[in-house]
Design a protein around this nucleic acid. Structure first.
Length: 444
RNA sequence: GCGAGUGUAGCUCAGCUGGUAGAGCAUCACGUUGCCAACGUGAUUGUCGACGGUUCGAAUCCGUUCACUCGCUCCA
């Protein structure tokens, strides 16, 4: 993880831009903020929805064998017993008062002595549990304890049979879900990269165990292709990390990692989970979750291939990849050029795809009706304030790929100028062809 | 959770050894301009992170607390 001063500055610049322009800022800030929680402002929310929509379309809408689900955040507590989260997310820890090291009790040979400095001056063991706890019903006692889901995939396993029956799907098929997950991270870090409330986009693909590795390879390829083609991630920005140490139930696992300013970080996991989850939920619930294969007259426990994306991390990766500073002409006194901050976001996910800018306020009325029309098809914004150059820069900073300038000729020739964000070049397009032009450019 | 650092306007920051706050940018209005943050005039903005203490008087000193950053720890 080779960090340079420049990278750390870059991260600060991105955080600052996010706050200044309303992408992402700390939750509950007027009360001093709350650690590990972030709000998406107007541009962030639009971008988040765009990425969600892209994933949903890619994973669900365009596939016959993947179904959607929208399950609850709070599930029966036994779900988390079965999944192993209540046991594995919970550790007894002690701190050494002398050398300040922290240790897990279950990993210490002698729980009364610090393995680091041999001191016996340890704090009382305390329970660290990453599951967020709440109570269902007005009585706050152990019996009514419930947990906010630590990942969105468990309800998918729990609802597996219901979805299968309702949709008459046969193996192989998948179930996808987008939703919030919660973890009491000990130490939230790196902006939204590790937060306590976050959004996951997960798909569990159920298949015959004999084809498990083939499907694992298939989804791995599909997901890498998605990042390259839809989000424009390049080989120097993205890498595949193959797990050497696998979870006891897993057969294979890779992480798709991205180069953040603070180092490489996981964006998505593609995991071969075997039959572990469905087997556990069968055991704990007493429901037989095996699949009846009528074609071959046999019962089998489906094997699961999981693709699991952190949506917040996707947004962060897009912003990090897109952030750039270059130079542009200026009319400022004593300067020929000026620094330009520009987000080179893919047009598919840019919060604003087209900004309609009348060259003069006198043209506002005509330009605004063009804006109304375009906003039915694209994420669009209208701005008359300040000079035209200033408005271009404002749009550059939020990553708007196309600025549509309505000028004095437009009234007569029914054409507008489209200014491209990255090249700053301009083309003249007739208003009647505008929608088609933008669709082609955006790549719908 | 431990250690170190930081916290002043939307942003970046200044404020010397205590005398109750400033600059640039941004934002808004008007004028001007009409294709890359132009210019002029004017306007808005802060319980100086919070609470408490010392003091005639605290942004400034002390304590506590909250948040953030970095390191450690954690990351099924």
């Amino acid at each position: 993880m080779a960090e340079t001063v420049k990278d750390l500055e870059l991260m600060d610049k991105i955080v600052s831009l996010c706050k200044r322009r309303g992408f992402i800022f700390p939750s509950s800030e007027i009360y001093g903020g709350i650690n590990g929680f972030w709000d998406y402002g107007p541009y962030g929310a639009r971008m988040k929805r765009a990425v969600e929509g892209l994933w949903w379309r890619e994973m669900v809408e365009t596939r016959d064998n993947v179904e959607g689900l929208d399950s609850t955040i709070i599930c029966h507590p036994r779900v988390w017993k079965a999944s192993g989260h209540l046991d594995q997310f919970s550790d007894l820890m002690t701190d050494c008062r002398d050398c300040k090291a922290r240790h897990r009790i279950d990993q210490m040979e002698n729980p009364t002595q610090c393995p680091n400095c041999k001191s016996a001056n340890l704090t009382e063991p305390r329970e660290f549990n990453l599951m967020m706890k709440t109570f269902v019903g007005p009585v706050f006692d152990e019996e009514h304890t419930a947990y906010l889901r630590a990942e969105t995939c468990q309800p998918i396993f729990v609802d597996f049979n219901q979805v299968r029956v309702a949709t008459r799907q046969k193996l192989p098929f998948g179930i996808a879900q987008i939703g919030k997950a919660f973890r009491n991270e000990i130490n939230p870090r790196n902006f939204t990269f590790r937060s306590r409330e976050f959004t996951q986009m997960e798909m569990e693909f159920f298949c015959d165990g004999e084809q498990g590795m083939e499907w694992f390879e298939y989804w791995k390829t599909q997901r890498i292709k998605y990042y390259k083609e839809k989000l424009g991630f390049t080989d120097d920005f993205m890498r595949i990390y193959e797990h050497e140490k696998l979870a006891h139930y897993a057969k294979a696992a890779i992480d798709i990692e991205v180069k953040f300013p603070f180092g490489w970080g996981e964006l998505e996991g593609v995991h071969h989970r075997g039959t572990w989850d469905l087997t556990r939920h069968s055991e704990f619930s007493g429901e037989d979750l095996q699949y009846m294969d009528h074609d071959n007259s046999r019962k089998l426990m489906p094997t699961v291939i999981e693709t699991s994306v952190g949506l917040d991390r996707s947004i962060l990766a897009l912003l990090c990849k897109a952030y750039a500073e270059d130079t542009a002409d200026t009319q400022k006194e004593g300067q020929d050029t000026d620094v330009r901050i520009v987000l080179r976001l893919p047009a598919l996910v840019a919060p604003i795809q087209a900004a309609v800018l009348p060259l003069s306020k006198k043209l506002s009325e005509n330009a605004e009706s063009l804006y109304r029309d375009l906003s039915r098809y694209f994420r669009t914004e209208f701005d008359v304030t300040g000079s035209i150059g200033k408005r271009y820069r404002r749009q550059d900073e939020i990553g708007t790929p196309f600025c549509i300038t309505f000028d004095f000729d437009s009234v007569n020739d029914n054409a507008v100028t489209i200014r491209h964000r990255d090249s700053m070049e301009q083309v003249r397009v007739n208003v009647t062809q505008l929608r088609q032009y933008l669709e082609d450019q955006i790549g719908y």
